[in-house]
Amino acid sequence: MSPGLVGIAIIDILLFTFLVVTAIAILRLRNLFGVVMLAGVFSLLSAALFVTLDAVDVAFTEAAVGAGISTVLMLGTIALTFREEKKPSHSALLPILVCAVAGAALIYGTRDMPAFGAPDTPVQTHVAPDYIARTPVETGVPNIVTAVLASYRGYDTLGETAVIFTAAIAVLLLLGASGKRRESKDSEGKE
């Protein structure tokens, strides 16, 4: 057992404990403002976890997008809707059963997975060393994640931009149309 593994494991266990506590608090809380704030906390904690796992680019994107933009959008939504959730009216037995069975199947699936942090797993030995070796020679970009994102897989990033563009248009159509309807309703009321 390497000392590096123990060090990371201690931080991971702490962060995961906080994450699980936050998720259960989100489950139990019925005040939606509190739920949205806890969702922001959840995102920030997961960003901290990504830093310990060496994914710094993912961490700052998660902190900016998950804890920032997503929280703002949700606050906007509860401002336009309601701040309290109704008590659930039906039994939760079936969802618990489904989640327990799916969770058990997934945990059974992890039995065959290589140990966390091992350098000789298929994930680490397949194409990743190739990208790491070729990036400084072919692109000259010091950050390998940026090099893959913008250079090697530039078309995928273009596709991602197309997805965001489509979503933005859909949001504008949904909300813009309702704004116009509200205006026409208001003017009808005045007349």
Binding site: A9, T81, P88, S89, I96, C99, T110, P114
Partner: peptide, 28 residues
Amino acid sequence: LGHYNYWMFVILMMTGLYITVSRGNLIK
């Protein structure tokens, strides 16, 4: 220690699934 991360991921994922399936409020 080698599988702890994977188990916690399963627990979090199932908590998320449970919230999605069992709660009636669309924002939640």
